[in-house]
Simulated assay, not measured.
Amino acid sequence: MTTEQPAESRVTSLDRLAPDEVGAVLALAGVASAADGADPLSEHVTLRLRQAEASPVTHLLVREPAGAVVGYAHLEPLDGAEVSAELVVHPLWRRQGLGRALVSAALDRVPGTGALLVWAHSDHPSAAALALDLGLHRSRVLWQLRRSLRDPLPEPKLPAGVALRAFRPGSDDEAWLAVNRRAFASHPEQGRWDLADLRLRLAEPWFDPAGFLLAVEESSGRLLGFHWTKVHGGRTEAHGGPEPAARAAGTGPIGEVYVLGVDPDSHGLGLGRALTLAGLHHLRDRGLTRVMLYVDESNTGAMALYTRLGFANWLRHVRYRRSPGSAQRPA
């Protein structure tokens, strides 16, 4: 398979994708996921693609001569003139310079004082080699951990005066967002969620309020912490197939510790452990045998908690960065 023109000249930039282009990009991501064993695009990106959300996003496409989409990059501005990028190239069209062309095009769209942040899902060696060539450096590592739910699972022990209940869509939205912002104040993605981000997920076919557990103060009803669980692997009309994480694993359904947070004012009560265990019991009671979660390698406290609860490293995602003054990419 050969290309008929330089890869760089085949990158097109769009502010918005047509429905057929969205479908083509999601299909491309599905093929790459099946080949690599990891989703090439994050949930954040796939949600916005499927929901056709209007936002200041740039889409880069590469098409093969017959017109099929074989390469894609999603560029989104962040605070401080930074640009976040995620990209995918069809497995049959790799080693032809398409990944380099997409990253180079992304670099050209970064403001002069900004920086490009590129996620490499599953830490593929070719991504590391490309990053080295283009002067990008590792800046963050996100681990996916997994645990069997067939292994012994301790019972959760809630502090006195604290009760668990299910999330109530519409009634708990603002209170949950406030605690989420406080719990993830220093987190580069989670702490930025607003009402639109929350409602995008509440509208997803996988959402189940019974698996969105809230720890509340019995005397006042004040929200102290939460464990939002998720199940990958069900077939839905929206997806037309298994959830990406289950598809990439090549096996049946898998649960996820989707978001777990505790209000800083409630630290030291053991809520993190209790909420984690409550969510794991919920997933096991649904008949699931495996569970996964994502955690920053730099979050040593969370890594220690999950390790004590039987989680082990499964795969890692790496974010690369190029700031102003970094080595220029080769001509």
Rank of each mutant, 00 (worst) to 15 (best):
M1Q: 09
T2N: 12
T3W: 11
P6T: 11
V11P: 08
V11S: 01
V22G: 02
L26W: 02
A29Y: 02
P40N: 01
V45I: 13
R50K: 10
H59Q: 05
L60C: 04
L61Q: 04
V62T: 07
E64Q: 15
P65Y: 05
G67M: 13
G67Q: 10
A68L: 03
V69N: 07
V70P: 00
P77W: 03
D79T: 12
A81T: 08
R100F: 05
A101N: 12
A101T: 00
R109M: 03
V118E: 01
A128V: 07
L132H: 14
H137E: 10
S139K: 06
V141C: 11
D151W: 07
G161C: 01
R168D: 10
W176E: 04
A178E: 15
F184G: 04
F184P: 13
S186K: 10
H187A: 09
P188R: 06
R192T: 14
D197A: 10
L198K: 04
L202W: 07
L224I: 04
G233D: 04
G234L: 11
R235P: 00
T236R: 08
T236F: 02
E237G: 14
H239K: 02
A246C: 10
G252M: 08
I254C: 03
Y258I: 04
G261Q: 04
S266Q: 14
A274P: 00
L275G: 05
T276D: 03
A278P: 00
L280F: 12
H281D: 12
T289L: 09
T289W: 01
E297P: 01
T307G: 15
F311C: 04
A312H: 12
R316K: 06
Y320I: 07
R321V: 08
